[in-house]
Design a binder for these strands. Structure first.
Lengths: 139, 139
DNA sequence: CTTGACCCCGTACCTAGGTACGGGTTTTAT
DNA sequence: ATAAAACCCGTACCTAGGTACGGGGTCAAG
């Protein structure tokens, strides 16, 4: 029989805030569920999995917009494994780019801290001097 | 004599939007400049360097809040090189943490795409299956 | 049958870092 | 002298991903 879930029950079951559920509905990540005559939402138990799907995809760095796309792929009968794989591959490229950007920043910062003994007055601090001095961005 | 700059001139000289200058002023990153009797702001030429400082610090991953702190350090007579170095070191730790997080994500995504041949129907796609299946977060 | 917990909705608020708009002065160039 | 350009201010808007609030209806236990 598996009784339908009320919003709060779904939220607890999925480990998210009630408001988050309504937010996802507004964003099109959760389909509008049937309503009781009183207006109360009635979620099928499967909704828990859908929310967990969203949370897991989020933890892999997908944005809600992208997750919406993944969820649509899941429903589309023409979707092949291939398309899904492609999304994941794109996301890897994304993540790698972010890592590369951060590494450049790390390197630049390291160069600065290495050049700074930590002694002496701020007037000669290589870090401040760097920030104060005109130069083509090293990044 | 070095004539003071009007807001638009400062913006052009520093390569930012006029609105950005007013925004920085509201945020306390730029001190309120003297005004002409008409209300027009009159910036000393040094303001250009201050804005460039902000832009460079931004490119090193500092937030505006942190940059405000750096600018205050610069003015504080008690600041030593040491304190500045510490800020940069903290930021490196920050950046490294972000890189580590992204690497975990990359690894998880790579594991998924590696496990997916790209052939076959979505029903058996290891990526979707992973997202759909309950499991302790691997991240 | 009442009371408290839960649900509804719309809207506002939050962080970060700006950008844009609109209506009213002032400056500047012709 | 007049018109365009630049400036002023306050406020609203933007992305992302929610969280919070307030007023009102509903549901279930005692």
């Amino acid at each position: 029989m598996q009784a339908p879930l009320k919003t709060g029950e779904l939220a607890r079951a999925a480990g998210v805030n009630v408001e988050t559920i309504r937010f996802y509905e507004r964003k099109g990540l959760l389909p509008e569920p049937p309503r009781r005559s009183s207006g109360y939402r009635e979620y099928p138990i499967g909704a828990v999995r859908r929310i967990r799907f969203i949370q897991r995809a989020k933890s892999l760095g997908f944005t809600l917009r992208e997750i919406k796309g993944l969820l649509e792929l899941r429903v589309d009968p023409d979707t092949t494994c291939d398309v899904v794989r492609e999304r994941a591959t794109e996301k890897i490229a994304d993540v790698r780019q972010k890592i590369a950007d951060l590494r450049k920043i790390e390197k630049a910062l390291r160069k600065l801290t290495d050049s700074c003994s930590g002694n002496g007055p701020k007037e000669t601090c290589p870090i401040l001097v760097h920030l104060e001095t005109f130069q083509e961005s090293s990044l």
